[in-house]
């Protein structure tokens, strides 16, 4: 278990979800004549002028609004994603510049499949607790790719969240402790220069997702001397609508404890942003004293678990709520989806 040597917490947070939604039934209809069952109701799709940089900027601006922190006081801007716009050229410098944190700040891009955001968050806790900086911005954001017709195309969504980490005495919520659990488990990957990821089918379930999520979450709870009953909310990585509910049930959580953070049916799997945006939806409504267990999952594979306790109710201060982003939706068909993803060759 990792516990900061001085109390650290979330002083601001923000999310972003693009406007477009592709019903999973559209994918099923095109590739299986509607015979394939759908793993989610619909997924979010980034607009033609949106990518991980632009979405991170908006989430970070929301986090800044909630915190009231001056951007020049941020000593690190870290973006975790598996869909950075450039192969070489940091997303984080674009975000840092846009939110006004440059030039005296650390900036870096993080990569660990779907847990790139939570590893940036965990590193931020150490960076702030160690006195290296007063505030650090950790972002998990993706515009996920799925090969046309592949199982991932039903769920690979767009969106994510940003967390501004600072001292607990000025925070909305304190990070009580965290824990990481990783093994070399090749369940999902994308090789250099390949456009779409590959996955190992059913192998992505038990040995990958469930083993890591439940191991990380149960170990953190036992190290803290807590059980699922000590938490008001549980949110974990959401690759589809079934996996997180099953993992939660294995850990002893009820559907009520998982409901507030479950967004996958509305926005799909936002990869590095998945459990982080779920956490923002919970923090939008959680009351002081309530406790949240957050557990990510990144293929390859690993999970980061966090115990977070609300210190005060969140005040929007002009920031847009996660619910508002989720409810802002324009349904598109597969043809428009193909256009937004840039699959048509114009020249």
């Amino acid at each position: 278990m990792m516990k900061a040597s001085r109390p650290v917490g979330i002083v601001g947070y923000g999310s972003y979800v693009p406007r477009y939604r592709l019903p999973a039934q559209e994918v099923s209809q095109l590739w299986t004549d509607g015979n394939s069952p759908v793993p989610v109701r619909e997924k979010s799709v980034n607009g033609i002028d949106e990518d991980v940089a632009t979405m991170s900027i908006e989430a970070a601006r929301n986090a800044l609004k909630r915190s009231g922190v001056e951007p020049q006081d941020i000593g690190a801007v870290w973006v975790g994603s598996e869909s950075h716009p450039y192969a070489v050229k940091p997303t984080s410098t674009i975000v840092a510049e846009a939110i006004g944190a440059t030039p005296y700040t650390q900036a870096a891009d993080w990569q660990f499949a779907c847990k790139a955001g939570t590893e940036a968050f965990q590193a931020s806790i150490g960076f702030v607790a160690g006195g290296m900086t007063r505030y650090a911005m950790a972002i998990g954001m993706d515009a996920a790719q799925g090969r046309p017709g592949d199982a991932l195309e039903y769920t690979a969504g767009a969106g994510g969240a940003a967390f501004l980490v600072g001292a607990a005495d000025e925070a909305i919520a304190e990070v009580e402790a965290s824990l990481s659990f990783v093994t070399d488990t090749p369940d999902f990957w994308r090789r250099q220069y390949e456009k779409f990821p590959e996955h190992a089918g059913r192998f992505t379930g038990e040995p990958a997702y469930f083993h890591h999520v439940t191991s990380a979450a149960s170990k953190l709870m036992s190290e803290m001397g807590l059980t699922s009953k000590d938490f008001d909310y549980f949110v974990c990585h959401q690759p589809n609508a079934k996996f997180p509910l099953k993992a939660g049930e294995e850990l002893g959580f009820s559907r009520d404890q998982m409901k507030a953070g479950m967004l996958v049916n509305d926005i799909g799997n936002t990869y590095a942003g998945s459990c982080m945006i779920g956490l923002t939806a919970i923090m939008d409504i959680a009351k002081p004293g309530e406790r949240i267990l957050v557990t990510s999952f990144g293929s390859g594979a690993g999970s980061d678990a966090f115990s977070i306790r609300m210190l005060r109710a969140s005040e929007p201060r002009g920031a847009i709520s996660t619910r508002a982003y989720v409810e802002r939706r324009k349904v598109i068909d597969y043809a428009m989806y193909t256009r937004l993803k840039g699959y048509y060759k114009l020249n």
Partner: peptide, 16 residues
């Protein structure tokens, strides 16, 4: 809002 304004082909820079 900050968005992608244009891109310089597949190899060029992205303009935000």
């Amino acid at each position: 809002v900050t968005r992608v304004l244009r891109e310089d082909g597949d190899r060029g820079m992205l303009v935000y």
